[in-house]
Design a protein around this nucleic acid. Structure first.
Lengths: 343, 343
DNA sequence: TTGCTTTACGAAAACGTGGTAGTGTTGAAA
DNA sequence: TTTCAACACTACCACGTTTTCGTAAAGCAA
C-alpha cells in the first residue's frame, strides 16, 4: 500500500536536490555520470514514473481527447470510438468518453466538465436534441477558448470547425440508383425526423436519384419514423397497399424490421421487396436475408477525426500566432455492399 | 481565442490577492460582502471555472475512472460501458476508456499509462491473452499502489479485488435444463477455447445439467471454436451426421451462424434444432428466427462495478488506516429470454 | 596569486488551486 | 491607556514536474 514514489522522495533518499533527480532521469549532461546512474538505478528499482497530472499542469496539455456522442450502445458510434482510440493510442493520447444520451443538457454538462482543463480537444457528434434546438453556444464557447473541436457524422453548418462526414446525399443517390437499375419503380424511403441532419441529406439524395431517372417523387413514399417501435405498424399498412416494391432505409434497424414485417405478410425479400439500408452494421451481416447496405466506415471516420484533432492540438503548440483558421471538412467515401436483400 | 481565466488573472484585474478571489468564490465568511460580490460578478462574467488539473494535483484525485476492455465494438462490452458511464456521471466522475484488443501488451501499456495519476481507479475485463498467459503483475502492481480495481466478466481468482460477474455456471445450467425440458436429448455445446474463464464455467454448467438429468456427457458434442469463421464448417459436418438436436452456444455470433448453417441444410429451427445463446445482444433480437438467450445485463454489471469502485475510492479518503480488505464478488442474476429458436 | 572557464549541482519559479496561518486596522471593553 | 477581539484581507505552502538561472568548487593559463 505504498503510494507512487515522487522526485522529492528520491531526492531525499539519495540526498541530492529534486532538480538533480529530474535532470538525471532525463539524461541531462549537466549531471555527472556517477550521480546520474545512481539516480537512474534507484528510480528504476522503485519503478518511478512521472505523475501525469503534474505534467499536465506544467505543460498545459493533458494528452487526452474528449469524445461526446449520443449513444455508445450503437454499432456505428462504437466503431468510430474504436477508430479514434487506435489513432489516439498511437500518438500517446487517452480518450475520455461522455454520452449525451441525445439530450442537450447532458451534452452541455459533459462539455463543461471536460472543458475545464481535462482534455486538449473534442471529437463529437451532436445529440438529436441539440440539432433540434439549434443551440450550439456550448460548442462556440470551447472553440473560443482555443480548444480544437472536430465534429463527425451529425454536424452543423452553424459551427466553424473541422468536420468528418460521409457524402450522405451521394451515398443515398447511389443506393437508390442501384434499386432503379434492378428494375424497381416504386421506391420508398424510410427515414427519421427532419432535424437530424443526416436524415435530411439522405432524403435529398433519394429525391435526386428518382428525378434523374424520370421517376415520380411521391411524398407519400417518404416514411418518417420517430421511434422504431412504431415502424412495424406503419410499414405493414403500406405493404398491404402494395405501395412500393423497394425500400431504402436510413438505418439497419428500420431495414430489418421492414424485412420481418414483409415476411410475416408472406412477401419475399428480395423478390417482392428489395431492401437497402444505410450504415453497415452487425445486423445487416447476420439477418436473414443478409441486407445490402451503404457502408459508412465508422472506423475510418474515427481515424480521420482523431488525426485531424491531434494535428490541430500539436499545431497550436508551435504557433501562438493567430493563424488563419482554414477548417476542413473531410468526406469519407462510402460504397454499396451487395447482399441478399437486393437482386 | 482568449484562454480560460484563472484565479490569478481575476486577482490582478480586481487588485486583490489570489486567496481573496478563491475565498470569495467559495463564499467564505472571511471576505467582506462588497468584495465577495464584486469578485463573484467578475468571475461569472468571465465564466470562471476552476481548472480540473490543478484541482486534481492539489487533491490527489482526478474524479475519473479508467476502463480497460478487450473490445469496444461489441454489444456486451458497450452496454457495460454504458452502465459505468451512467453511475460515473451521477457521481461526477469521467470515464477514460482504453481498449486492449485482447492483447496482453496493450493491456499492460494502457494500465501503466493511466496508473500514473490519471485516474482514481480501474474497472476492467481481462484480455484473452492475459488470461492465457496468466500473468497479472500489472494488476497486482496498481493494487499495491493503493489504487482500487474492480474486475468484471472476464476475471481471475489469482487477483484479490472486487469483482462483478454473472453466475456463468448456473446460467448455463438453466439454459441446458430448459432444452432438456422441451424434450431434447442430444445437446451440443459450442464454446470458445478453454483459457477464457467464462467459457470454462459455462462448460461446467452444461455438463452438470446433463448429468443431473441422467443424460450422457459426450466430449464429442463440445465444439471448441477459436475463430467464428471456422464455425460454419465444423457445424455443418456435425449437423450432417445428425449428431445433435439442440445447441447451447456461448455467444450469439456462434448461435446465428449455426442457425444459418442449419437453414442452408434444410433443417428447421426450432423444429429440427433448438438453439440457445449466451449474451442477449442485438443479433438475437433481430435474427430470423429470433434467438432464445441467457441475458446477462451488461448495464447492470456496469452500474454495479462503478458503484463498487466509487465507494472504494471515496472510502479511501476517509480512512488512511490499513483497513482489512474485505473484497466482495457481486453476482448479477441472469434469466432466460425465450424467443423463436426454442420451443 | 589572479582571473577565467568548466563541471556539477542546487534554488527557485511556474503551472492553478485551496487551506492554514498570519497581519494590520478598527473599535470596544477593562 | 492598554488589551483584546473582530474584521478583512494577504502570505505562504503544498501538490509533482520541468527548466532557467545561479554558484561553489575545481582546473588551468598567465
Amino acid at each position: 500500500m505504498k503510494r507512487k514514489i515522487t522526485l522529492k522522495q528520491i531526492a531525499k533518499e539519495l540526498d541530492v536536490s529534486i532538480s538533480t533527480v529530474s535532470k538525471s532521469l532525463r539524461n541531462s549532461l549537466e549531471i555527472g555520470e556517477e550521480t546520474r546512474l545512481k539516480v537512474q538505478a534507484f528510480a528504476k528499482f522503485y519503478n518511478y514514473k512521472p505523475n501525469n497530472i503534474a505534467l499536465s499542469l506544467k505543460n498545459r496539455k493533458t494528452k487526452s481527447i474528449g469524445i461526446i456522442i449520443p449513444e455508445i450502445v450503437h454499432y456505428f458510434f462504437s466503431t468510430v470510438i474504436n477508430g479514434i482510440e487506435q489513432v489516439a493510442n498511437e500518438y500517446g493520447y487517452s480518450v475520455v468518453i461522455c454520452v449525451s444520451d441525445d439530450s442537450f443538457d447532458k451534452e452541455v454538462l459533459n462539455m463543461e466538465m471536460l472543458a475545464n482543463g481535462s482534455i486538449d480537444g473534442f471529437i463529437m457528434s451532436l445529440s438529436k436534441e441539440t440539432q433540434y434546438k439549434g443551440d450550439f453556444h456550448h460548442i462556440t464557447e470551447v472553440i473560443n477558448q482555443g480548444m480544437p473541436v472536430v465534429m463527425f457524422d451529425r454536424v452543423t453548418n452553424d459551427i466553424l470547425c473541422d468536420k468528418v462526414i460521409i457524402d450522405d446525399k451521394s451515398a443515398a443517390y447511389e443506393a437508390v440508383q442501384s434499386l432503379i437499375d434492378s428494375g424497381r419503380k416504386k421506391i420508398a424511403l424510410v427515414t427519421t425526423v427532419d432535424y437530424v441532419s443526416v436524415g435530411k441529406l439522405r432524403t435529398d439524395g433519394y429525391e435526386k436519384a428518382l428525378l434523374d431517372n424520370g421517376l415520380p417523387f411521391n411524398e407519400d413514399l417518404i416514411i418518417k419514423i420517430e421511434d422504431v417501435d412504431t415502424c412495424e405498424i406503419t410499414i405493414s399498412e403500406l405493404l398491404h397497399a402494395r405501395a412500393f416494391d423497394a425500400v431504402f432505409a436510413v438505418n439497419e434497424l428500420f431495414a430489418v424490421t421492414i424485412i420481418k414485417t414483409a415476411n410475416k405478410m408472406g412477401l419475399k425479400v428480395p423478390e417482392d421487396l428489395a431492401v437497402i439500408a444505410f450504415t453497415d452494421g452487425i445486423i445487416s451481416k447476420y439477418s436473414t436475408p443478409t441486407i445490402t447496405t451503404v457502408s459508412q466506415s465508422g472506423e475510418k471516420m474515427g481515424n480521420k477525426a482523431a488525426k485531424m484533432l491531434i494535428e490541430r492540438i500539436e499545431a497550436e503548440e508551435n504557433e501562438d500566432e493567430e493563424h488563419t483558421e482554414n477548417y476542413i471538412t473531410e468526406v469519407i467515401e462510402t460504397h454499396l455492399i451487395k447482399r441478399e436483400s437486393t437482386d
